[in-house]
Design a binder for these strands. Structure first.
Lengths: 341, 341
DNA sequence: ATCCGGAATGTAACCGGTTACATTCGTGTG
DNA sequence: CACACGAATGTAACCGGTTACATTCCGGAT
């Protein structure tokens, strides 16, 4: 016999409510779900009975009967190390949680870093243990995407996947890197900068491609390809790349960085080379990372609306659960003006 | 009739496995749960059938039958603003998720910032929609704690609650602020500093109290009360407080800060006052916040093992679900040596 | 008056498991 | 050889809901 922990009061079931209201379980259930098959008067009687008994519908029973879990799986595949120092994941997650409140759906975190965890997760998805999946960390060429498509579940990807074959299948939400990059480039142009350098992340990354495109669109012929370099995402890489750039092009008067960590590296390289920021060289970061606010000088940066991204992801998931077709939402980035540019 | 989304394959139930293996549902179920009532041979037959059919147990059905949800609720009550710039929440959450993997339990985020969300959460707890609650953001005097105790569910608090009346009822995990503070104080003493200033957070905060105690234990009579000040948690507060302190006590040669954000403020105040860090004044932060790594100069700080805190919280929850008595685990903080001290 | 149809409710099956109790079967014992 | 007993398995009830289908009851049309 299933029993709760000691001290757990026997829970009130819909049968209790039905008895209390003097109707059948079926009618009680219909009243609970506000079906238009029941008289207003009967509904009132049932609701009073609910009030008296303190009934709360048991999600498991309902899930079993309806085939719906009333949960949204939030899938995280990134290995710990990469995201460790990055609050990005936490913010989007929080946005998803907030976006789901009030909907009756709960976010369930599904950590699938290892191959076996991944297989387990997929099998449980296959069994409809969640009603939709929000994938926080998709990347191009992942076979996980293929498997997700195979489950037939509604899937929302957080992040842009270029040349994706999943356009009509998955919903996607991402921040508009091209637009964000334009904002950054416009800022340095408006500031009268003439010899702009660009220090980007890895060249094959879709975010990198878009940011580069945005810079190029605004700078046009003023963008000298020789002043564009690619490097890693982190501060050390940004420092080294900027130092090299300063050697070959000592005359640069602005640096557009592919990430805030790269930008912090650039600041260090410029400082070491004796340049004043922003007097001699303007620097604009990218991401709205926490470090941008506390660097010296504080970084002007292009911020992604991460929490909002979570909100939108939640909405997309709920819509697809409701039968809506997959769609893509693109969020606007915003320029956060601080000192560096 | 409950139906999945179009395209959903009818799921494999334990009845299918039973038929495939030529046994009854009961036996199949027992084999799945590794009961010692079934022959090794029968178990093998059932497992082969599982292999062939691709069966995965349906968590909802099992939950309904056993009265267990196989989920752990992760309760977050903090309003958005406070934690917005702080990855703390995300890291602990991630730790909980990791600590739960392999246990069969899934973390469910329960966001309860508003009063109504809180009431809803409590009602669902009352109905055993989760098997345990990990409370990420408990604070003293919260009536939520009272209500949680009332549910009879296993509860794990992340964070120290002094003078708590819940000692035998809730499990608790927290980092040892006293010990962490001792590490910081020992560092500056070993460095030969003589006139140590302390810039703490709000005086009524339990973390503040403990950190102050740790400093005092190590510094003893060398700690002049006149050089101890309380202020807010943020950078601006740290800056202002340190600036005032420099006016009244220009001879200080070390600052022990109550948080990394305060410490960053101290760095700024010292820089403005023309002091070199660490040559003239040593600075030690607290928390292991991301900004500590990127400040100028990089901060030596006392780091909380946040992810591990999540791991331990998960373990405590699982243990209590298994019937273990509540207990408290205290984690060691560690000194992260960078440049500032 | 009879029949029909629709609205409101009841009955019972079902979702996918678990488990108390019944049954079968082989074996050691009196 | 009959019997008792324990191990392995089967039968069926149950967890807490939802819902297809059956039933009842009513008013209006013929």
């Amino acid at each position: 016999m299933p029993r709760g922990r000691p001290g757990a009061p026997r829970s009130v079931t819909i049968a209790d409510v039905a008895r209390e209201a003097g109707v059948s379980r079926a009618t009680a259930s219909r009243a609970v779900n506000d079906s238009d098959l029941v008289t207003a008067e009967t509904k009132r009687a049932v609701h009073e009975a609910i009030e008296r008994t303190g009934f709360v519908v048991n999600a498991r029973g309902r899930a079993l009967a309806t085939g719906r879990a009333e949960t949204v799986g939030v899938l995280v595949t990134e290995p710990l190390d990469e995201l460790f120092d990055d609050p990005t994941y936490g913010r989007v997650l929080r946005g998803v949680a907030e976006g789901l409140t009030g909907s009756g759906f709960l976010p369930v975190i599904i950590q699938a870093s290892s191959e076996s965890e991944r297989a387990l997760a997929l099998r449980s998805f296959g069994r409809r243990s969640v009603d939709a999946v929000v994938h926080l960390t998709p990347y191009r060429g992942s076979d996980l995407l293929e498997s997700l498509a195979g489950t037939g579940l509604p899937v929302v990807l957080c992040g842009q996947l270029d040349d994706s074959p999943y356009d009509g299948i998955f919903s996607t939400v991402y921040s508009d890197d091209v637009h964000g990059a334009r904002l950054a480039a416009e800022r340095v142009l408006a500031d009268g900068r003439e010899r702009v350098a660009v220090v980007l992340g890895p060249a094959d990354n879709p975010a990198t491609v878009d940011r580069r495109r945005g810079y190029a669109e605004v700078l046009g012929s003023r963008l000298d390809e020789a002043r564009v370099v690619h490097t890693g995402w982190d501060t050390a890489a940004g420092l080294a790349a900027t130092a090299r750039l300063l050697k070959s092009h000592p005359d640069i008067d602005a640096v557009l960085a592919g990430s805030d960590r790269i930008a912090v590296g650039s600041l260090a390289a410029l400082h070491a080379a004796g340049r004043q920021v922003p007097e001699d060289v303007a620097v604009v970061g990218f991401d709205g990372h926490a470090i941008a606010a506390t660097s010296t000088p504080p970084l002007t940066t292009v911020a992604q609306p991460l929490v909002e991204e979570g909100h939108v992801a939640a909405r997309l998931a709920l819509d697809m659960i409701g039968g809506a077709a997959p769609r893509t939402e693109v969020l606007e980035m915003s320029l956060v003006s601080r000192v560096s540019a």
